[in-house]
Amino acid sequence: MSVTEYEALPDVPDFIEDDSGSSAAASVFSLTDLNVYYAENRAVADVNLEVKEREITAFIGPSGCGKSTVLRCFNRMNDLIPIARVEGSVRYHGVDLYAPEVDPVAVRRRIGMVFQKPNPFPKSIFDNVAYGPRVGGMKGNMEDIVEKSLRRAGLWDEVKDRLDESALGMSGGQQQRLCIARAIAVNPDVLLMDEPCSALDPIATGRIEELMKEIQNDYTIVIVTHNMQQAARVSDRTAFFTAELDERGDRRGRLVEFDETSTIFSNPADERTEAYVTGRFG
């Protein structure tokens, strides 16, 4: 068995809804034997891992290793790809997200997502932030919700005088922070970030990273990144995925190692992880 990460994890409970405030944070997600297929191709094989509450968990690895695919299982965005099929279990606070009675729309209201390319809607800045609360039927003063969300995303001072202007006129970094504000506005429990800085310059990237550290006390964050330094800077735990070729020559993603970020970067258990984080591979 090439998957070593599960054994390597210390003291991981199978799944416990643990709000006791003990030093071991509760699991928000637990993946058990997760396999994702695109048509006949098994794109991700046998992933087991736990995402802890109020931590930043980073997924790193080379292109095609399935890290984004795994991320999109957490809020059932893979449902939107007709040929995608998920096997194994994805548990969120103990609930199987792929159980037939689970409504993916309700899942996505609790588990927000920020995408690789900033994707503001072609609407005003205000309407972008208000979009989620409106479709979710949220009660309360919309102006307050929008202001609170923009403040949380560190964008309020920059945009407070032009809330009715189109979001498409903002810079890329502002647009991505707007997308974070938009995701925060529906009051989610988890934020999934799929390479949120890959289209941004280093300064805008730095602001997003600061923002992640600021909001991590309130949200559980899972971030997919190509940037190893970013994972090392912001995350508490890191999962290293890699791609191998299956018998048909298609790429298959596997989780190689999952541990505290400091361990992954300074003392990884698997030589493939070491090769990757030291820049000898990938």
Binding site: N75, M77, G112
Partner: peptide
Amino acid sequence: VPGSYRDGAYGLGATQWETIRTQVLPA
């Protein structure tokens, strides 16, 4: 209509009809 509008709407918990009505049709 860019797929990113659909992703954004679904990601915020919009239903298929809400996504069509508020994002796809206006665009």
